[in-house]
């Protein structure tokens, strides 16, 4: 069963075109990985799907669980079950992590969660991520190290239980142990009813999650799709081959 179908998606930001025709389908129970060189448009894809105001969609459609995603406001997309773990999460001074989690949960699930049970659940999820409980009282992302911010994103993911989670360079800024903990959690959160799209250029995460599909994004387009063996190929040869392929195509 299909969660998302992206067809011929093209976008630009500050007058420059980044996405040049993305086609991608993710079904329930699948884990997809997108890899590619810097500047290829990986983060842009994530931001465009979430609805970042600076990015303008030029062409294409995105069907999300039967709805037109591009027609929805940002918060409506979240309520529909889309989640983005940001590469650079924003700091929101004065708003505690706990307060924020409860508010988001209420908005996305439509029900205000019961205080004590919610608190218990969150603390358990924090423990699974090796996150100190004290973070609940801290202001959202303020003063958090890069790694702590990323863990906080994954914590939100496990609380909000989305239908499709896009993880944008979640491994950057994390040490080896943290990467393991985060991606093991992600693997645990993957089930038959949801989908996960991991954006990375770091191969090692494949030690912790088992993707069903691997795509290579070069210059705003997906140039090759395959399975985990594709990732192994990239590790051996890098992106040059794909860049050359892409260049040849556009000639």
């Amino acid at each position: 069963m299909q969660i998302i179908k992206i067809e011929n998606l093209k976008s630009q930001v500050e007058g420059q075109q980044i996405l040049k025709g993305i086609d991608l389908t993710i079904n329930k129970g699948e884990i997809h990985v997108i890899m590619g060189p810097n500047g290829a448009g990986k983060s842009t894809l994530a931001n465009v799907l979430m609805g970042h105001p600076a990015h303008e969609v030029l062409e294409g459609t995105v069907d999300f669980l039967g709805k037109d995603l591009l027609d929805m406001k940002v918060d409506e997309r979240a309520k529909a079950g889309l989640f983005l773990s940001f590469q650079y999460p924003q700091e929101v001074p004065g708003v505690t992590v706990e307060n924020f989690l409860r508010t988001a949960k209420k908005e996305v699930s439509g029900i205000m969660p019961m205080m004590t049970q919610f608190n218990k659940d969150v603390k358990k999820q924090m423990a699974d991520l090796n996150m100190d409980e004290k973070y609940l009282e801290r202001y959202l992302n303020q003063g958090f190290s890069g790694g702590e911010k990323k863990k906080n994103e994954i914590l939100q993911m496990s609380v909000l239980n989305p239908k499709l989670a896009i993880l944008d360079e979640t491994d950057s800024g994390l040490d080896i142990d943290a990467i393991r903990v985060v991606y093991e959690t992600v693997q645990k959160l993957s089930n038959d009813n949801n989908g996960i799209l991991v954006i990375t250029h770091y191969n090692k995460i494949l030690n912790y999650i088992k993707p069903d599909f691997v795509h290579v994004l070069v210059d705003g387009k997906i140039v090759r799709s395959g399975d985990i063996t594709l990732a192994e190929e990239i590790e051996r040869t890098g992106y040059e081959v794909f860049k050359a392929e892409n260049a040849a195509k556009t000639v």
Partner: peptide, 23 residues
Amino acid sequence: FYLMSRGIDEAEAKAMIVRGFVE
């Protein structure tokens, strides 16, 4: 944008930020 991406609508997002500012 960050707050809206978590399902909070724009008005509430702004109110949260202002309350946070004053906190």
